[in-house]
Design a protein around this nucleic acid. Structure first.
Lengths: 260, 260
DNA sequence: ATAATAGTGTCTCTCAGACAGTATGTG
DNA sequence: CACATACTGTCTGAGAGACACTATTAT
């Protein structure tokens, strides 16, 4: 049952709700932050915005903003994503990740941030016009932002590096038992395209023939279009679209599983 | 990097933070709600409290309460759990589940609730003295609360039925690739004890010999104590404790996997 | 022809499902 | 004794890792 259609059952309760004073509870800000991932030029990349005001002025941060009381969390995430990227129809995937509420994570006030993870093919991102409170927005290769010892990228604002790491692990884990990897490629795509997404996200190399067998034998992963294209030299490549299925049975486990 | 040690880098920023007015952002209440699960008398059960005030007065709800600005979300969940159950040291597991923020989910005011899932053996719950704002607290078999067509239990308050369903699915999924099921049994335990936990949570029957083989062959799942006990009639039973491992490689998949 | 890439087929090992048989207790 | 439960071992089929081979294109 949903609570949205709540109706008081007595005059007593009606009076209670009418005279209720919300200010007696500790009020905090609630924001949504988005880890939007895509694969550009073969590199897994995350959308960051440069902060135009204090705090962390000039540093890079995940896109996000305050949740409105009259919208759901999912709607707030989709709205913020639209405002930052211009993406209207979401050819991709957006799901709630985790909520962060450590005291002091925002020096201005207590803020609880509901983080989301999104993934989409590069071509579905039209403009990347910077939003109102961000002086710039662009994709950064994840490797440069996190483990980057080469060019010393500035660390992310707030606790956004933690959020990014958690988002990455979520995506890597979900690749094992869902068809989410298809959200990163544009249709139509080849099996090799899909494999390169797996390899980039997992940071490993996969055996092309075994990967192909797994993908084609799993019902609902991809559906053949019947078309082929010639790309470079070599045999013509068969093209596919996303299948209807969402989960992989049995899962495709990552190589070198750590732990136990 | 953690944001808790944030220090302004200029006088300009210091002035900005000092004069910052948090009230210009939409303030909402942030609560934590807890799906605390245990297995009592062979039945998977969830801790519920009966509401003593409006709204949903007299109905059963998940335990929870408001987050304090000076504590983390994990601390808030542990504190609320302690206040409701008296559990101080957590012989079990507590993890963040999902955040719920639909408009109107609390008729009093906009409330965003960060839900947690906890699991513990029954014996580690001492008293169950009802908290301040709850007139009663007890465990209910999950089957009676959700699918119960037998005795018509009243539905849960707010959107807590959704939260309970999500929590259940989280636990069921995690049983496949983690050792979390050991959180439900008291030490020392038998392999059959652990199997009955799986069977009750998944709602299926498992082949005892294959289950035993899987558990004992998985490194870090359980560690033998060397002791045995006589329980009822039959061969003496070997006793085990929880192993150090957290994950199962490869996973133990549920029978009858739906989807794709 | 040569190189390069796509696609097919095969062998082997691991592991889960099914199930027979043995061991050791209680009534 | 019968009976119940724990524990051991075997057979089989599904599926993943490794790898040889064929097909088709561009240069």
């Amino acid at each position: 049952m949903s609570a949205n259609d709540y109706t008081p059952e007595s005059d007593e309760e009606r009076d209670f709700l009418a005279s209720y004073d919300p200010t007696k509870f500790p009020a905090v800000g609630v924001t949504v932050d988005i880890v939007l991932l895509t694969v550009r030029q073969g590199r897994l990349s995350v959308l960051l915005v440069q902060r135009g005001g204090y705090p962390y002025k000039g540093m890079w941060a995940l896109p996000g903003g305050f949740k409105n009381p009259d919208e759901t969390l999912d709607q707030a995430a989709a709205r913020e994503l639209m405002e930052e990227t211009g993406v209207t129809e979401l050819e991709g995937h957006l799901e709630q990740l985790k909520t962060y509420g450590d005291p002091g994570r925002d020096p201005r006030m207590p803020v609880v941030s509901v983080a989301y993870v999104g993934m989409m093919p590069e071509a579905s991102i039209p403009s990347l016009a910077a939003g109102s409170d961000a002086s710039a927005a662009r994709f950064w290769p994840v490797g440069d932002v996190l483990g980057g010892t080469e060019g010393d990228q500035p660390p992310l604002a707030f606790d956004h590096e933690d959020i990014l790491r958690d988002g990455l692990e979520r995506v890597r884990a979900k690749f094992e038992y869902t068809t989410l990897a298809t959200s990163f490629v544009e249709e139509p795509f080849t099996v090799a395209d899909l494999r390169r997404v797996y390899e980039e996200v997992w940071g490993v190399e996969l055996e092309p023939r075994n990967f192909r067998r797994k993908v084609l034998k799993t019902d609902g992963f991809v559906t053949p279009t019947g078309d082929t294209v010639n790309v470079g030299r070599g045999k013509p490549v068969e093209l596919y679209r996303r299948g209807g299925g969402a989960t992989l049975h049995p899962p495709m486990l990552r190589p070198d599983p750590e732990g136990s």
